[in-house]
């Protein structure tokens, strides 16, 4: 895991925000605007530490609206385009979310033995940058502000994708099925610790 951490640090040192944004732009196809919101995340504003390893490190709740007609499933990815070698560093991959879902509850289970809440029954998590199929929040180097894209994809089919897909594999599998997408883009900076590391 030190390996992954060093990749993260190296990636963030090499890449600044504008570069990240252009990488992001290339990664998505043009699609209808899905309206994405979150009770506790706001674009451009710092995330609460509950969603980071400085706190409970649980996944944030999300809601969506203006869902395209014919949506059969959703997928959500959280990525930091200012980290990773190559970028992005992926914090969360979740898919097979039923088309009836209005959003995601807070604290999606990290134990595969714990069933998903009924509203998102069948939802499956893919591998993040730490190669775990769970949400892990931001842990940027102290003193640097990073940007986190929580992107929601509305899909025209329930693709019944297998567990443990990476973001790249998910994007590949969703090709041609994306009816719309939208995102919420908070930021996070770790405070200088009270005790020396």
């Amino acid at each position: 895991m030190t390996h992954f951490l060093s990749l993260l640090l190296l990636g963030s040192a090499l890449l600044a925000g504008p570069v990240a944004a252009s990488v992001f732009a290339q990664a998505v196809a043009p699609a209808a605007k899905l309206v994405v919101d979150s009770p506790r995340l706001k674009s451009g504003e710092p995330m609460h530490k509950d969603f980071t390893p400085d706190g409970r490190n649980v996944s944030p709740a999300m809601t969506w609206s203006n869902v395209p007609e014919g949506t059969k499933a959703f997928a959500v990815v959280c990525a930091d385009f200012g980290a990773g070698l190559p970028p992005p560093w992926v914090h969360w991959v979740i898919y097979n979310i039923p088309g009836t879902a209005k959003g995601l509850p807070e604290a999606v289970p990290i134990d595969p033995a714990v069933p998903m809440p009924a509203a998102i029954a069948g939802a499956t998590q893919g591998l993040n940058g730490w190669k775990r199929a769970i949400y892990r929040g931001p842990a940027p180097p102290v003193g640097t502000t990073h940007v986190y894209y929580f992107t929601v994809y509305a899909l025209d089919a329930d693709l019944k994708l297998k567990p443990n897909l990476t973001r790249a594999e998910l994007l590949d599998a969703m090709k041609g099925h994306i009816l719309g997408q939208g995102d919420v883009v908070p930021v996070y900076e770790r405070r200088v610790p009270r005790t020396a590391e």
């Binding site: 895991m1 030190t2 992954f4 951490l5 390893p53 400085d54 490190n57 990290i110 730490w130 775990r132 769970i134 892990r136 842990a139 180097p141 102290v142 770790r190 610790p193 009270r194 005790t195 020396a196 590391e197």
Partner: peptide, 16 residues
């Protein structure tokens, strides 16, 4: 998981 990934570093907990 956070200790394993190194994410607990930088929190002020004092890991060497």
């Amino acid at each position: 998981i956070d200790v394993e990934s190194g994410a607990a570093t930088g929190t002020g907990a004092g890991f060497a």
